[in-house]
Nucleic acid binder design. Structure first.
Lengths: 207, 207
DNA sequence: CCTTTTTTTGAATATACATTCAAGATATGT
DNA sequence: ACATATCTTGAATGTATATTCAAAAAAAGG
């Protein structure tokens, strides 16, 4: 954040912000996931981020700006998480299995882990704010692309797949992921979620 | 709502409420589906129901009471809708096809039609209110039962299915329905939704 | 038409909230 | 140590909101 300014041939360096941006955004995102956007009040956000209202408005413009920044951070974190998850996969089945195992683990964990910031926010305020809606749609499509790449990867011992087939299969898979997340909001029985994941895997691998 | 009271051996009849309860609840439910619970303000509710604040508080106790009553009405309406939809089905495939066709039609319709009041409310405030959460979970499980009955129905030309198999298949089917609804919040392309419905049908019918 | 109690009315209340702002604190180059 | 602009602070502001309440209107049997 450091920048320069010059006055009367004197160069001064601007003061840099004190807080850790990533840490602030991760705390804010957790609050948004736990309570939802509307029920995460500014007092709550000052509490969890450790920033005073003025600092939040200085750094992120307003509450919505903080949400958008938290969404970006969420996306970056998730992308890194999945790239690590998919590393050294040996087959399509292996990659999808890892993804689903990770998903069901999250769904039986605490409230902030079992929800997806993107779909939760889309559900709550997507219709009311086109800027947020388009940011969320873009990010969700990136996840779909990530899955599509797994279907298109030329794994040993598997046939190649057409671009269109991969698009369809990735879309269906992501749809199932949305479904499992929603289902876990009503019933978070581990065995039931496992059964749903198994059926999702079978349906996604069948030709 | 008519009741009796007696004073000095004179019998009086209580005044009956003027508004149409079902109509009020359907208007309220549509507002909740369009804007979500938090963003449906009391001024908005007085506008769409035609009732003044005092009347709402007299009839439903408070805003949450109105939501709970709207949820009951939604459930009753939906149950009737699906019973009609399933009438005269000739096969499991036929019944599920009708359900999915109805679903995709709703998903490309206007905002209040494409969402499910139960899942939307669960997503938004389920975690914050155990009474609402349990009402929603109960209702959602009733829908799952409705689908399970279709799997258990002894259709001509189809094998019987175990209770457990029907439970699993109904759960997976409902999970897909949740997924399609969430997916349609990002992309409401009719062809894509149709493709997802087709894959859901195929996965649900495969043994 | 009178009596009684409920429903209806809508202004008033109290609270919660997002946002602003001006004063004070801090970092950095000279 | 000084100068400068930014960051930080947190109380103040204005708005939006759910809820209450007391007065007025209405229903219905006598």
């Amino acid at each position: 954040m450091a920048a320069e300014f010059v006055v009367d041939s004197h160069r001064y360096a601007m003061r840099t912000a004190e807080f850790n941006r990533e840490s602030v955004l991760r705390n804010a995102m957790q609050a948004f996931m736990t309570y939802g956007y509307n029920k995460t009040s500014m007092p709550k956000l000052t509490e969890v981020t450790g920033l005073h209202p003025g600092s939040i408005y200085c750094a992120f413009k307003n509450k919505k700006g903080l949400l958008l920044a938290a969404i970006e951070q969420y996306q970056a974190d998730r992308r890194a998480h999945y790239q690590q998850l998919f590393e050294n996969s040996t087959s399509l089945r292996c990659a999808l299995e890892r993804f689903l195992q990770d998903l069901t683990n999250e769904c039986v964990a605490d409230e902030s882990k079992k929800v997806c910031l993107l779909t939760k926010t889309l559900n709550e305020i997507g219709e009311q704010d086109k800027e947020i809606q388009s940011a969320l749609s873009t990010h969700l499509q990136q996840f779909e692309s990530l899955i599509k790449q797994q279907f298109l990867t030329p794994w040993p011992d598997s046939e190649v797949m057409s671009e269109e087939a991969a698009t369809n299969k990735a879309r269906f898979f992501i749809m199932c992921v949305y479904g499992i997340r929603t289902y876990s909001a009503t019933q978070c029985n581990s065995a039931e979620l496992q059964a749903l994941a198994d059926q999702t895997l079978a349906a996604s691998l069948s030709p």
